[in-house]
């Protein structure tokens, strides 16, 4: 490579690299899109919901411009690890198992898991009470971890998205579903298709399975970004931004104790 253009090219490349690193304030945020009311696709094809509003509030607080990257739940951690995005804001619970792969900010909300079934189901939430029944849940969630760990004999049906779980619950293909209680109450029970359904059993929040609330996932080693998110969550909690977003969706404060 002795051609003189090469020098120019190398210079341009070096400059381009410098320019992109200078513009690294742009953050790509992995979100999901089938988990109402936290994230869903609206009629015009945009992702909206609590997670999205929180994302925008945090980015504004941190002074970053953020780009939403929609990702399947299944592949959302690999997407972060491969650099397709810089953070995950998708109602992902902070668990020990996930911490082996990625790092988390502090929580931005916390709610227990619960079972839901059609009114008059007569089910109880014990391995015996669910024996011979089919429970539907989203693949790769804390709810699957719990069932695998504590009710391994109960038959599970695994779905790619929470929306599909609801579809099959309504269709009667599964006897009950196990998911986040807020997601169920606001994303399903309060909707027309969920009107004949109800919660049953206790609140599930054992830290071993359910972690300590939903946090923002970042790649390991990116402590600065992680801490920036944690600090931004604290700020929007204090300055009322969180409350106004919260109240847009929920009647109670979902941040948790």
């Amino acid at each position: 490579m002795k051609r003189p253009e090469f020098k120019k090219f190398a210079l341009a490349a070096a400059f381009a690299a410098f320019a992109t690193s200078a513009a690294a304030d742009e953050l790509n945020i992995c979100v999901e899109g089938a988990y109402p009311p936290f994230s869903e696709i609206n009629a015009s094809g945009d992702v909206v919901g609590f997670d999205i509003d929180i994302t925008n509030a945090l980015c504004a607080e941190m002074g970053n411009s953020c780009k939403l990257v929609q990702s399947e739940w299944d592949g959302i951690i690999p997407a972060l690890l491969e650099g397709k995005c810089d953070a995950i804001i998708a109602s992902m619970s902070i668990t020990e198992e996930r911490k082996q792969r990625i790092d988390f900010s502090g929580k931005y909300y916390n709610s227990p898991g619960r079972f839901v079934a059609k009114q008059g189901h007569g089910l109880t939430d014990s391995p015996e009470g669910l024996a011979g029944k089919v429970i539907g849940l989203q693949r790769g969630t804390i709810f699957q971890d719990y069932m695998d760990g504590e009710m391994a004999d109960v038959e599970l049906k695994l779905y790619g998205t929470q929306d599909e779980v609801y579809l099959d619950l309504v269709a009667g293909r599964i006897d009950a579903a196990f998911a986040d209680s807020i997601a169920i109450s606001d994303g399903f029970l309060k909707t027309d298709q969920g009107k004949d359904f109800e919660f049953f059993g206790r609140d599930y929040s054992e830290e071993k399975y359910f972690g300590v609330g939903a946090g923002i996932g970042v790649r390991k080693g990116e402590e600065d970004l992680r801490d920036a998110f944690t600090a931004a969550i604290k700020t929007i909690r204090e300055n009322g931004t969180y409350k106004s977003i919260n109240d847009k969706y929920f009647e109670v404060d979902i941040y948790g104790g």
Partner: peptide, 12 residues
């Protein structure tokens, strides 16, 4: 394959 991927947060 998907189930194993999702369980351990892997892709390949």
């Amino acid at each position: 394959g998907r189930t194993v991927n999702a369980k351990y947060y892997i892709a390949y």
